[in-house]
Amino acid sequence: MESEVKLTKLASCAGCGAKVGAGVLAQLLEGIRVHSDPNLLVGFDKSDDASVYRISDDLALVQTVDFFPPIADDPYTFGAIAATNALSDVYAMGGEPKLALNIMAVPADMPKEAVHDMLRGGYDKVYEAGALITGGHSILDREPKYGMAVTGFVHPDKMLTNSGAKAGDVLLLTKPLGIGVVTTAAKADLVSKETLDYAFQLMTTLNKSARDAMVKYRVHACTDVTGFGLLGHGTEMAQGSNVELHLHVDGFRFLDEAAELARMGILPEGMYRNRNFAEAHVDEGDVPLHLQDLLYDPQTAGGLLIAVHPEDAQALFEELQTCVPAAQRIGEVTPYTGGKHIYLH
């Protein structure tokens, strides 16, 4: 349903592109004392997607929070995207979301129907995930923002971090890239309705099916590709796992029109932040600049980046082809040799 307010016009930056850069974040947290607890399996020092706390030998709590300014004009779509994105961090840890709390900021003059539609989009997506919204907190703000704190569960032995990749693993990705470029282009009507609609469809596709498929195989590491882009999140995975990622650009799927838009300089500010953070760790080889840019492009509610045991790779790849938007075999993991962490081929 179309609303009279153009939500994205109220936002200075959109979706996960609004994220504080990974390098800046590390500086902001520097020197803050970290309390340890033997049951805290994943904390904020790990640069992972969510925190994980062991409750018992067979149960751990997964917690995450995500919110951002509008990336879609239609409030229902924006609400659904924000929820898909917030739930994704639980799936990336191999967990299942169970409870969610809304976080919402709205301008005093935003029409009630628009706020209602935004929330309805969030609720519908959370119910689709099999989780519940049990409350939330709302404040007035000039710029609308919406998202959720999500709690889920995982078996402590089956939790998937972004730092467990092993040499020999095959890298799989579950959604095409280029969401940041396409939503930036949409601000100036530079992209077709078909491509923009497909981007919205991707951003409202839960990573649930991808998660449900991968937990059946020997997956060693997983992360969801969101604001830091494929190469930002890939850098965190490679550094955390002390390995190298070798990525084959031919293996990637990009949204239609995204490559041409990147070549024309229609790139979001977040792409440059991601580049600044990660490029020291990336050997770009002779990959053309516009394709590099797409690998740094911030994604909102992007797909899962999965490092899987080589013997399970083909079976998982084939299963993913039946249940995710675009199963891609994008590269492999090798031991770290002391140079860059990611090599593009």
């Binding site: 070549r263 300089g265 229609i266 790139l267 500010e269 440059y272 516009h290 840019d293």
Partner: peptide
């Protein structure tokens, strides 16, 4: 008046 615009215009100009 923003570095991101400099970079984006540079890419367009090169194309």
């Amino acid at each position: 008046d923003a570095m991101v615009c400099v970079e984006n215009v540079k890419r367009y100009a090169a194309s």
